[in-house]
């Protein structure tokens, strides 16, 4: 009997894992605050990036303010391959990263181990 219960619980947990990690879940998106001639977005780094998608306006100088709260070594760097940026994120401090917004497109960023990702979308 107890084995049956354990099996049921185990299978339920597997189902939950599949739904939780592989199911469709909404991504947090932020549209940059355009103030005068600059735009900025704050990104909190804690078990991933919040927000995960950033929308920027083309041609307006932009900064992303990363703040790492997580002490995992997975997230201690942020890499933007297209912009040649590989920056260390000191824990608890705000690290400002300038983004070149001259080109429209979708650019991915990732953590140093390429396990967590986010996107910058530059629109007209």
């Amino acid at each position: 009997m107890s084995k049956l219960i354990v099996s049921m619980i185990g299978i339920t947990v597997v189902g939950f894992i599949i739904w939780w990690f592989f199911g469709k879940h909404e991504q947090s998106t932020a549209i940059a605050d355009v103030k005068a001639d600059t735009q900025s977005v704050d990104i909190e780094v804690n078990g991933g990036y919040s927000v995960e998608t950033v929308i920027l306006k083309q041609g307006v100088p932009a900064v992303l303010n990363f703040k790492r709260l997580d002490s995992s070594s997975c997230l201690d760097h942020v890499v933007f391959p297209e912009f040649g940026i590989n920056r260390e994120l000191p824990k608890g401090e705000i690290e400002t990263i300038e983004i070149d917004t001259s080109q429209v497109g979708k650019f991915q960023w990732a953590c140093g181990m390429d396990m967590f990702r986010g996107n910058v979308i530059i629109e007209k």
Binding site: W20, F21, G23, H25, N46, G47, G48, S50, L69, D70, S71, S72, C74, L75, M115, F116
Partner: peptide, 14 residues
């Protein structure tokens, strides 16, 4: 902490 924070975001890591 890190595991919990990423779990809440539907992520998992090492």
């Amino acid at each position: 902490q890190s595991a919990w924070a990423s779990f809440k975001k539907h992520h998992a890591n090492m």
